[in-house]
Write a protein that binds this DNA or RNA. Structure first.
Lengths: 362, 362
DNA sequence: CTGTTAGCGCATTCAC
DNA sequence: GTGAATGCGCTAACAG
């Protein structure tokens, strides 16, 4: 290497420079009150002169903490995940923690198993002080409990299993599915299809259950061919599902998509085929991502409180790490229906029922 | 705590259990060849029995490396950033590194300064082995060079300053801006506006410069009121900018948006006002995010090779960390025009020029 | 108030 | 092949 790698100053160098012992420097660094003002001044000056920065690894080894929190997510690119990541990132930094981010994959059950090994590696190596897991798979629960026993606390977000002893934040996906479907029913539609996420994911099953319940409550029969499973929550999934749905014996009047991206993909297919939203088929999405508002037509959707979820999780975890609390967290957050133009109304051919959009006369 | 926190086994516990010294266990752990097969077996068995996992902090302190790479980004939620994050994450994991992610903020110049302090904290504390910075601000260059001197290599992505001595991957934003504008010109439009990103970001200025150059090359005069600055790259920015643009003396025939999200926001405003795309105003976006394909109409855009950028950056950084290379990286990646339906053609009122969309007869 | 002494958990010389 | 000693950079308990 041509680069000259000068030696980093250690706490001892500072001590020598200031004419004190390393312990005193340590006291100054940690803002301990029992240091004479004059001494403190001298030490601080030496620190500045040498441009000294404590070694986080050494501090961690000694204090038995790292100042790092792990966040394991299915992916780092779908809006649902990025929303939570953003929220967690902000909360963590506000608390002075760094965020170690790892993606476990979502596509197949195989890759889901990878999550467990990620957790093992992260937790057992004492690389992090605590762990946040977004949409944990069931096989992760064991390792997570073991880690808790080893003193590494965790909070699980959007966790649908029996979390016995673990801290969990769950979204009422059942309620959200019910909400979406009910809105379509109230808008006058009866022939309602659902484009699901992966059936092996509890969040998908819960939204589907909500859909079923709403239809049942309204006495509307359920048509299996209108329940289309997906491989993920992205546009591609939506395209594929919509193509499948269009091959059904009868075309539905309305569609509940298990994610906004699925709705986008599905609506793109309709465009190609010459069907219009909401005139020919009404749509409700799920997630409440920003782009849903800009979409044309603006997408009615069920918003998940991503910011709240991330913040609650991060803050509770920090509390556990800091020993400020012992409580088990077990909250359920509710979804919220955001009505836009994509649902129209079965009664009229126009968008009379839509709260946003063009004035009637223009 | 009700949870029993059993003590983690250390390398000494394993040594005692196996009847060897700690050094030998260390040799086994690091797959050194000079250990008798029988001894190795015994040690491995003890490791398994005690469920021993090396302490990453201690290993790091001793070996002077952490196995962690820092990634500093403007945000973790806009598609441009998430695309790079995803790519970096994958490459890093393939190489066995963990990713520490930090967001510096994008909105104001003030928050940009925060980037420098993030870098300081990260680099000087020996918390990471190397650093990736997405869209570095100029004030970060000093700290970055200092870190390089201290043996912490870095690679800067989408970096537009004189990077003297630093490793950089730059996108040809000028070329991309030219490409987008040229496409609109070729489609027959002459009245072309641009919705920019923040003027204080070099990427914004470069795209604008490309826009200007294309117009000049075609002998089309530039109207300052059609150059609308933005505060960011999101939908909100697009909405605000479009409203501003609609107040100009004359309405342009086409718009080049500095990001796909800006285009989305702008098109939503047009929808509210009763103007249609591309019939009334044609659109070209920038980024090439997945949703651009699902948008209605499908958005013509300039795709950035996010995956390539992230991968190149991560792999070169890993090479530097591992000492496999000394080379300065200094590559420029090109953008690519993706033609869809949002541009139409000035010659016809219909979408005759669009490669995708409805068949003419339907 | 401050210095001395011991670790934290591991890797790395050196001997044997 | 293997073990004993030493150090990575810092904090913490104990003296004084």
């Amino acid at each position: 290497m041509s680069t000259l790698t000068r030696e980093r100053p250690s706490i001892r160098d500072v001590a020598r420079e200031a004419g004190v012992s390393a312990s005193t420097v340590s006291r100054v660094l940690n803002a301990r009150p029992d240091v004479a003002p004059a001494t403190r001044e001298r030490v601080l000056r030496s620190i500045a002169e040498l441009n000294y920065h404590p070694d986080a690894q050494a501090v961690g080894l000694s204090r038995r903490r790292t100042g790092v929190v792990g966040l394991v997510v299915p992916d780092v690119i779908t809006p649902f995940c990025t929303g939570v990541i953003e929220s967690v990132q902000n909360s963590l930094r506000a608390r002075g923690y760094w965020m170690l981010l790892a993606a476990s994959g979502l596509d197949t059950e195989e890759r889901a198993r990878m999550q467990a090994s990620l957790l093992e590696e992260l937790g057992r190596s004492r690389r992090i002080d605590g762990l946040l897991v977004l949409i944990p798979v069931e096989s992760s629960l064991g390792p997570l409990r073991a880690m808790a026993g080893d003193g590494v606390p965790s909070v699980l977000i959007d966790m649908q299993y029996n979390g016995g002893g673990l801290n969990t934040i769950v979204v009422d996906n059942y309620g959200g599915g019910y909400l979406a479907t009910e809105h379509l029913l109230q808008s006058g539609y009866r022939d309602i299809a659902i484009l699901c996420g992966p059936h092996w994911m509890p969040v998908s099953r819960d939204r589907l259950a909500g859909y079923r319940a709403a239809l049942q409550d309204w006495g509307v029969p359920i048509r299996p061919e209108w329940i289309v499973p997906g491989l993920g929550f992205n546009e591609e999934t939506g395209q594929y599902a919509m193509r499948t749905l269009l091959q059904a014996d009868r075309r539905p009047q309305a569609v509940f998509a298990a994610s906004d991206l699925i709705a986008f993909g599905a609506m793109a297919v309709l465009d190609e085929v010459g069907l219009r939203v909401p005139e020919d088929i009404a749509f409700v999405g799920f997630d409440g991502i920003p782009t849903a508002a800009s979409f044309r037509p603006p997408l009615t959707t069920v918003r998940q409180p991503l910011e709240t979820m991330g913040r609650l999780a991060a803050e509770h975890l920090c509390g556990l790490i800091a020993g400020e609390t012992d409580e088990r967290l077990h909250v359920t957050v509710e979804t919220e229906l955001v009505v836009r133009d994509s649902c129209g109304s079965a009664d009229s051919a126009s968008r009379a029922a839509a709260p946003r959009g063009l004035p009637a006369e223009s």
